[in-house]
Structure formats: C-alpha cells, structure tokens
Computed example of a mutant assay.
Amino acid sequence: RAGALLRESLPKILTDKMAGDPRPVDGSFIDENLRGTHSDRLFQVALQDGRTAFIYTLIEHKSWPDMGAPLQLMGYRHRIWTRYAQDKPERRRALPPIITLLV
C-alpha cells in the first residue's frame, strides 16, 4: 500500500527512478515531545542505477504555514544519515538521497 501511495504522491521524475517498491525502515526521527502531533515513516527503495534512496514521510498538523519546516526536515534528514552511517564511517562518503514528503 505504501508503495502505491508514494508513487501517486511523488513526482513522476522521481518514481521513474525507483526499481522496486519502497520497504519500511524501523524507527522514528521526530523529537519525543512532538510525537503526539507528528507521525513519520522512513522507507528504503532501490533505484534503477543500483543505488539506494530513502523516502521520508512526515504527517503533521499545522494550523498555519510554518516557515521553519525546511529546517525541521533537515534535522530529521541529519538523524537518518547519522543512523545510516553509525558504526560504518565509510558510508559517509556516499550518503543516499532522502526524498521528503510532508503532508
């Protein structure tokens, strides 16, 4: 279900690069104090060129446009890359792209 939803929600230029369906990755990357109003999910997907990418989805209720959202999402990306490279410093040389979908 998630694969179909992501393919419908993401731009075609991105979904055309996907070689298979996204697989969920365990864990959450949002702050503990925000978990009551936010829900996130990370997926891993193989790309046509053999690389891997992440798709990070964040469902969040905001009553107004939040100009700080890009910085908030950058912090979550940092956490994803940090966990990805944890105990494997060689992974820092080629971090996989993270596609972000904010709803």
Rank of each mutant, 00 (worst) to 15 (best):
R1W: 06
R1F: 05
A4L: 09
A4G: 08
A4D: 09
L5C: 08
L6C: 01
L6K: 00
S9V: 03
S9C: 11
S9Y: 04
P11L: 08
I13F: 11
I13T: 14
T15H: 03
M18V: 04
A19W: 00
D21V: 02
P22W: 00
P24Y: 09
V25M: 10
D26R: 14
G27L: 07
S28T: 13
S28A: 12
I30T: 12
N33K: 15
G36K: 14
T37W: 13
T37C: 15
T37S: 14
H38V: 11
H38T: 13
H38M: 12
D40E: 11
R41V: 08
R41C: 08
F43Y: 14
F43L: 09
V45R: 01
V45N: 02
V45Y: 04
A46S: 05
Q48D: 14
D49F: 10
D49R: 07
D49V: 13
R51D: 14
A53R: 13
I55Y: 03
Y56P: 00
T57V: 13
I59H: 10
I59M: 09
E60I: 10
H61R: 14
W64C: 08
P65M: 08
P65A: 07
D66H: 12
A69N: 05
P70H: 10
L71N: 15
Q72K: 15
Q72G: 05
M74H: 08
G75W: 11
Y76H: 10
Y76S: 02
R77I: 05
R77A: 13
H78W: 09
H78R: 11
R79W: 01
I80S: 00
W81C: 01
T82Y: 07
T82L: 04
R83E: 08
Y84A: 01
A85P: 01
Q86A: 11
D87I: 00
K88D: 06
P89Q: 05
P89L: 02
E90F: 03
R91L: 05
A94V: 06
P96L: 05
P97E: 05
P97A: 06
P97K: 08
I99M: 05
T100M: 08
L101P: 03
L102K: 12
L102C: 09
